[in-house]
């Protein structure tokens, strides 16, 4: 390995990005200027919550949120279909909004609260059950995106009309054409949940 010539070596302060000439200078600078501050976050490190679990992960600047949750976290329910924000198959809920994880950079998700289909299936097993019961899927590739979008709708509008469900799901593409079953499954879930609510 080639040794770096001393004159080309500079030391970058991790707190304020000041450039120092030697390691000793850097030490002195940090102790005098930043002693009271907490340790700075390394570049690319983000903290976020996914399905209720806290994560601290180092991400590359070009990673999408989809890559982070699907490839790195193994939450493979989010699916890559259109590859450019046209199909809704990679939908996750971020800070209470349904968003497209393929169009969101992971590095911008600092502090975000993310809910994937795996999270939805844990908190809303009856919604999953209604999807299975009402055949609201065929090949199933796009289905998680629909489920997450429906859940985001229900969070905001617990008792949506058929038309409201259709409009909420209008950004989700299904090549098998399972569309008519989705409002049926969602409304069946709402009906059952209604009776549970009454009990509460």
């Amino acid at each position: 390995m080639t040794e770096i010539p001393q004159q080309e070596c500079r030391y970058l302060c991790p707190y304020c990005s000041n450039v120092l000439d030697s390691f000793e200078d850097l030490k002195t600078h940090v102790l005098s200027e930043h002693k009271a501050e907490s340790i700075p976050t390394p570049e690319g490190l983000i903290r976020l919550t996914v399905n209720g679990q806290s994560y601290e992960v180092k991400v590359e600047p070009e990673w999408t949120l989809y890559q982070l949750i699907h490839d790195k976290m193994g939450l493979t329910g989010a699916k890559m279909f259109c590859d450019r924000g046209a199909c809704g198959s990679c939908t996750v809920i971020m800070n209470a909004r349904a968003i497209l994880s393929c169009m969101t950079l992971a590095i911008e998700c600092e502090g975000a609260n993310i809910e994937t289909v795996e999270g939805v299936s844990a908190t809303h097993p009856q919604l999953i059950e209604k999807y299975a019961e009402h055949h609201a899927m065929q090949c199933g590739y796009c289905t998680p995106g629909f489920v997450v979008t429906a859940k985001a709708l229900l969070d905001k509008n617990p008792n949506p009309t058929e038309q409201e469900i259709r409009e909420a799901l209008a950004g989700n593409l299904c090549r098998c054409g399972t569309y008519p079953q989705h409002p049926i499954a969602v409304q069946a879930f709402v009906e059952d949940r209604g009776s549970v609510k009454d009990d509460e």
Binding site: A132, H135, M137
Partner: peptide, 23 residues
């Protein structure tokens, strides 16, 4: 009709794996 699909829970819950998911 019914009771439900064999693959229904897997597919709706995102637990169904496709070749694109293989790592």
């Amino acid at each position: 009709r019914g009771p439900r699909r064999v693959d229904g829970i897997q597919k709706a819950s995102g637990r169904a794996d496709y070749t694109m998911d293989v790592q």
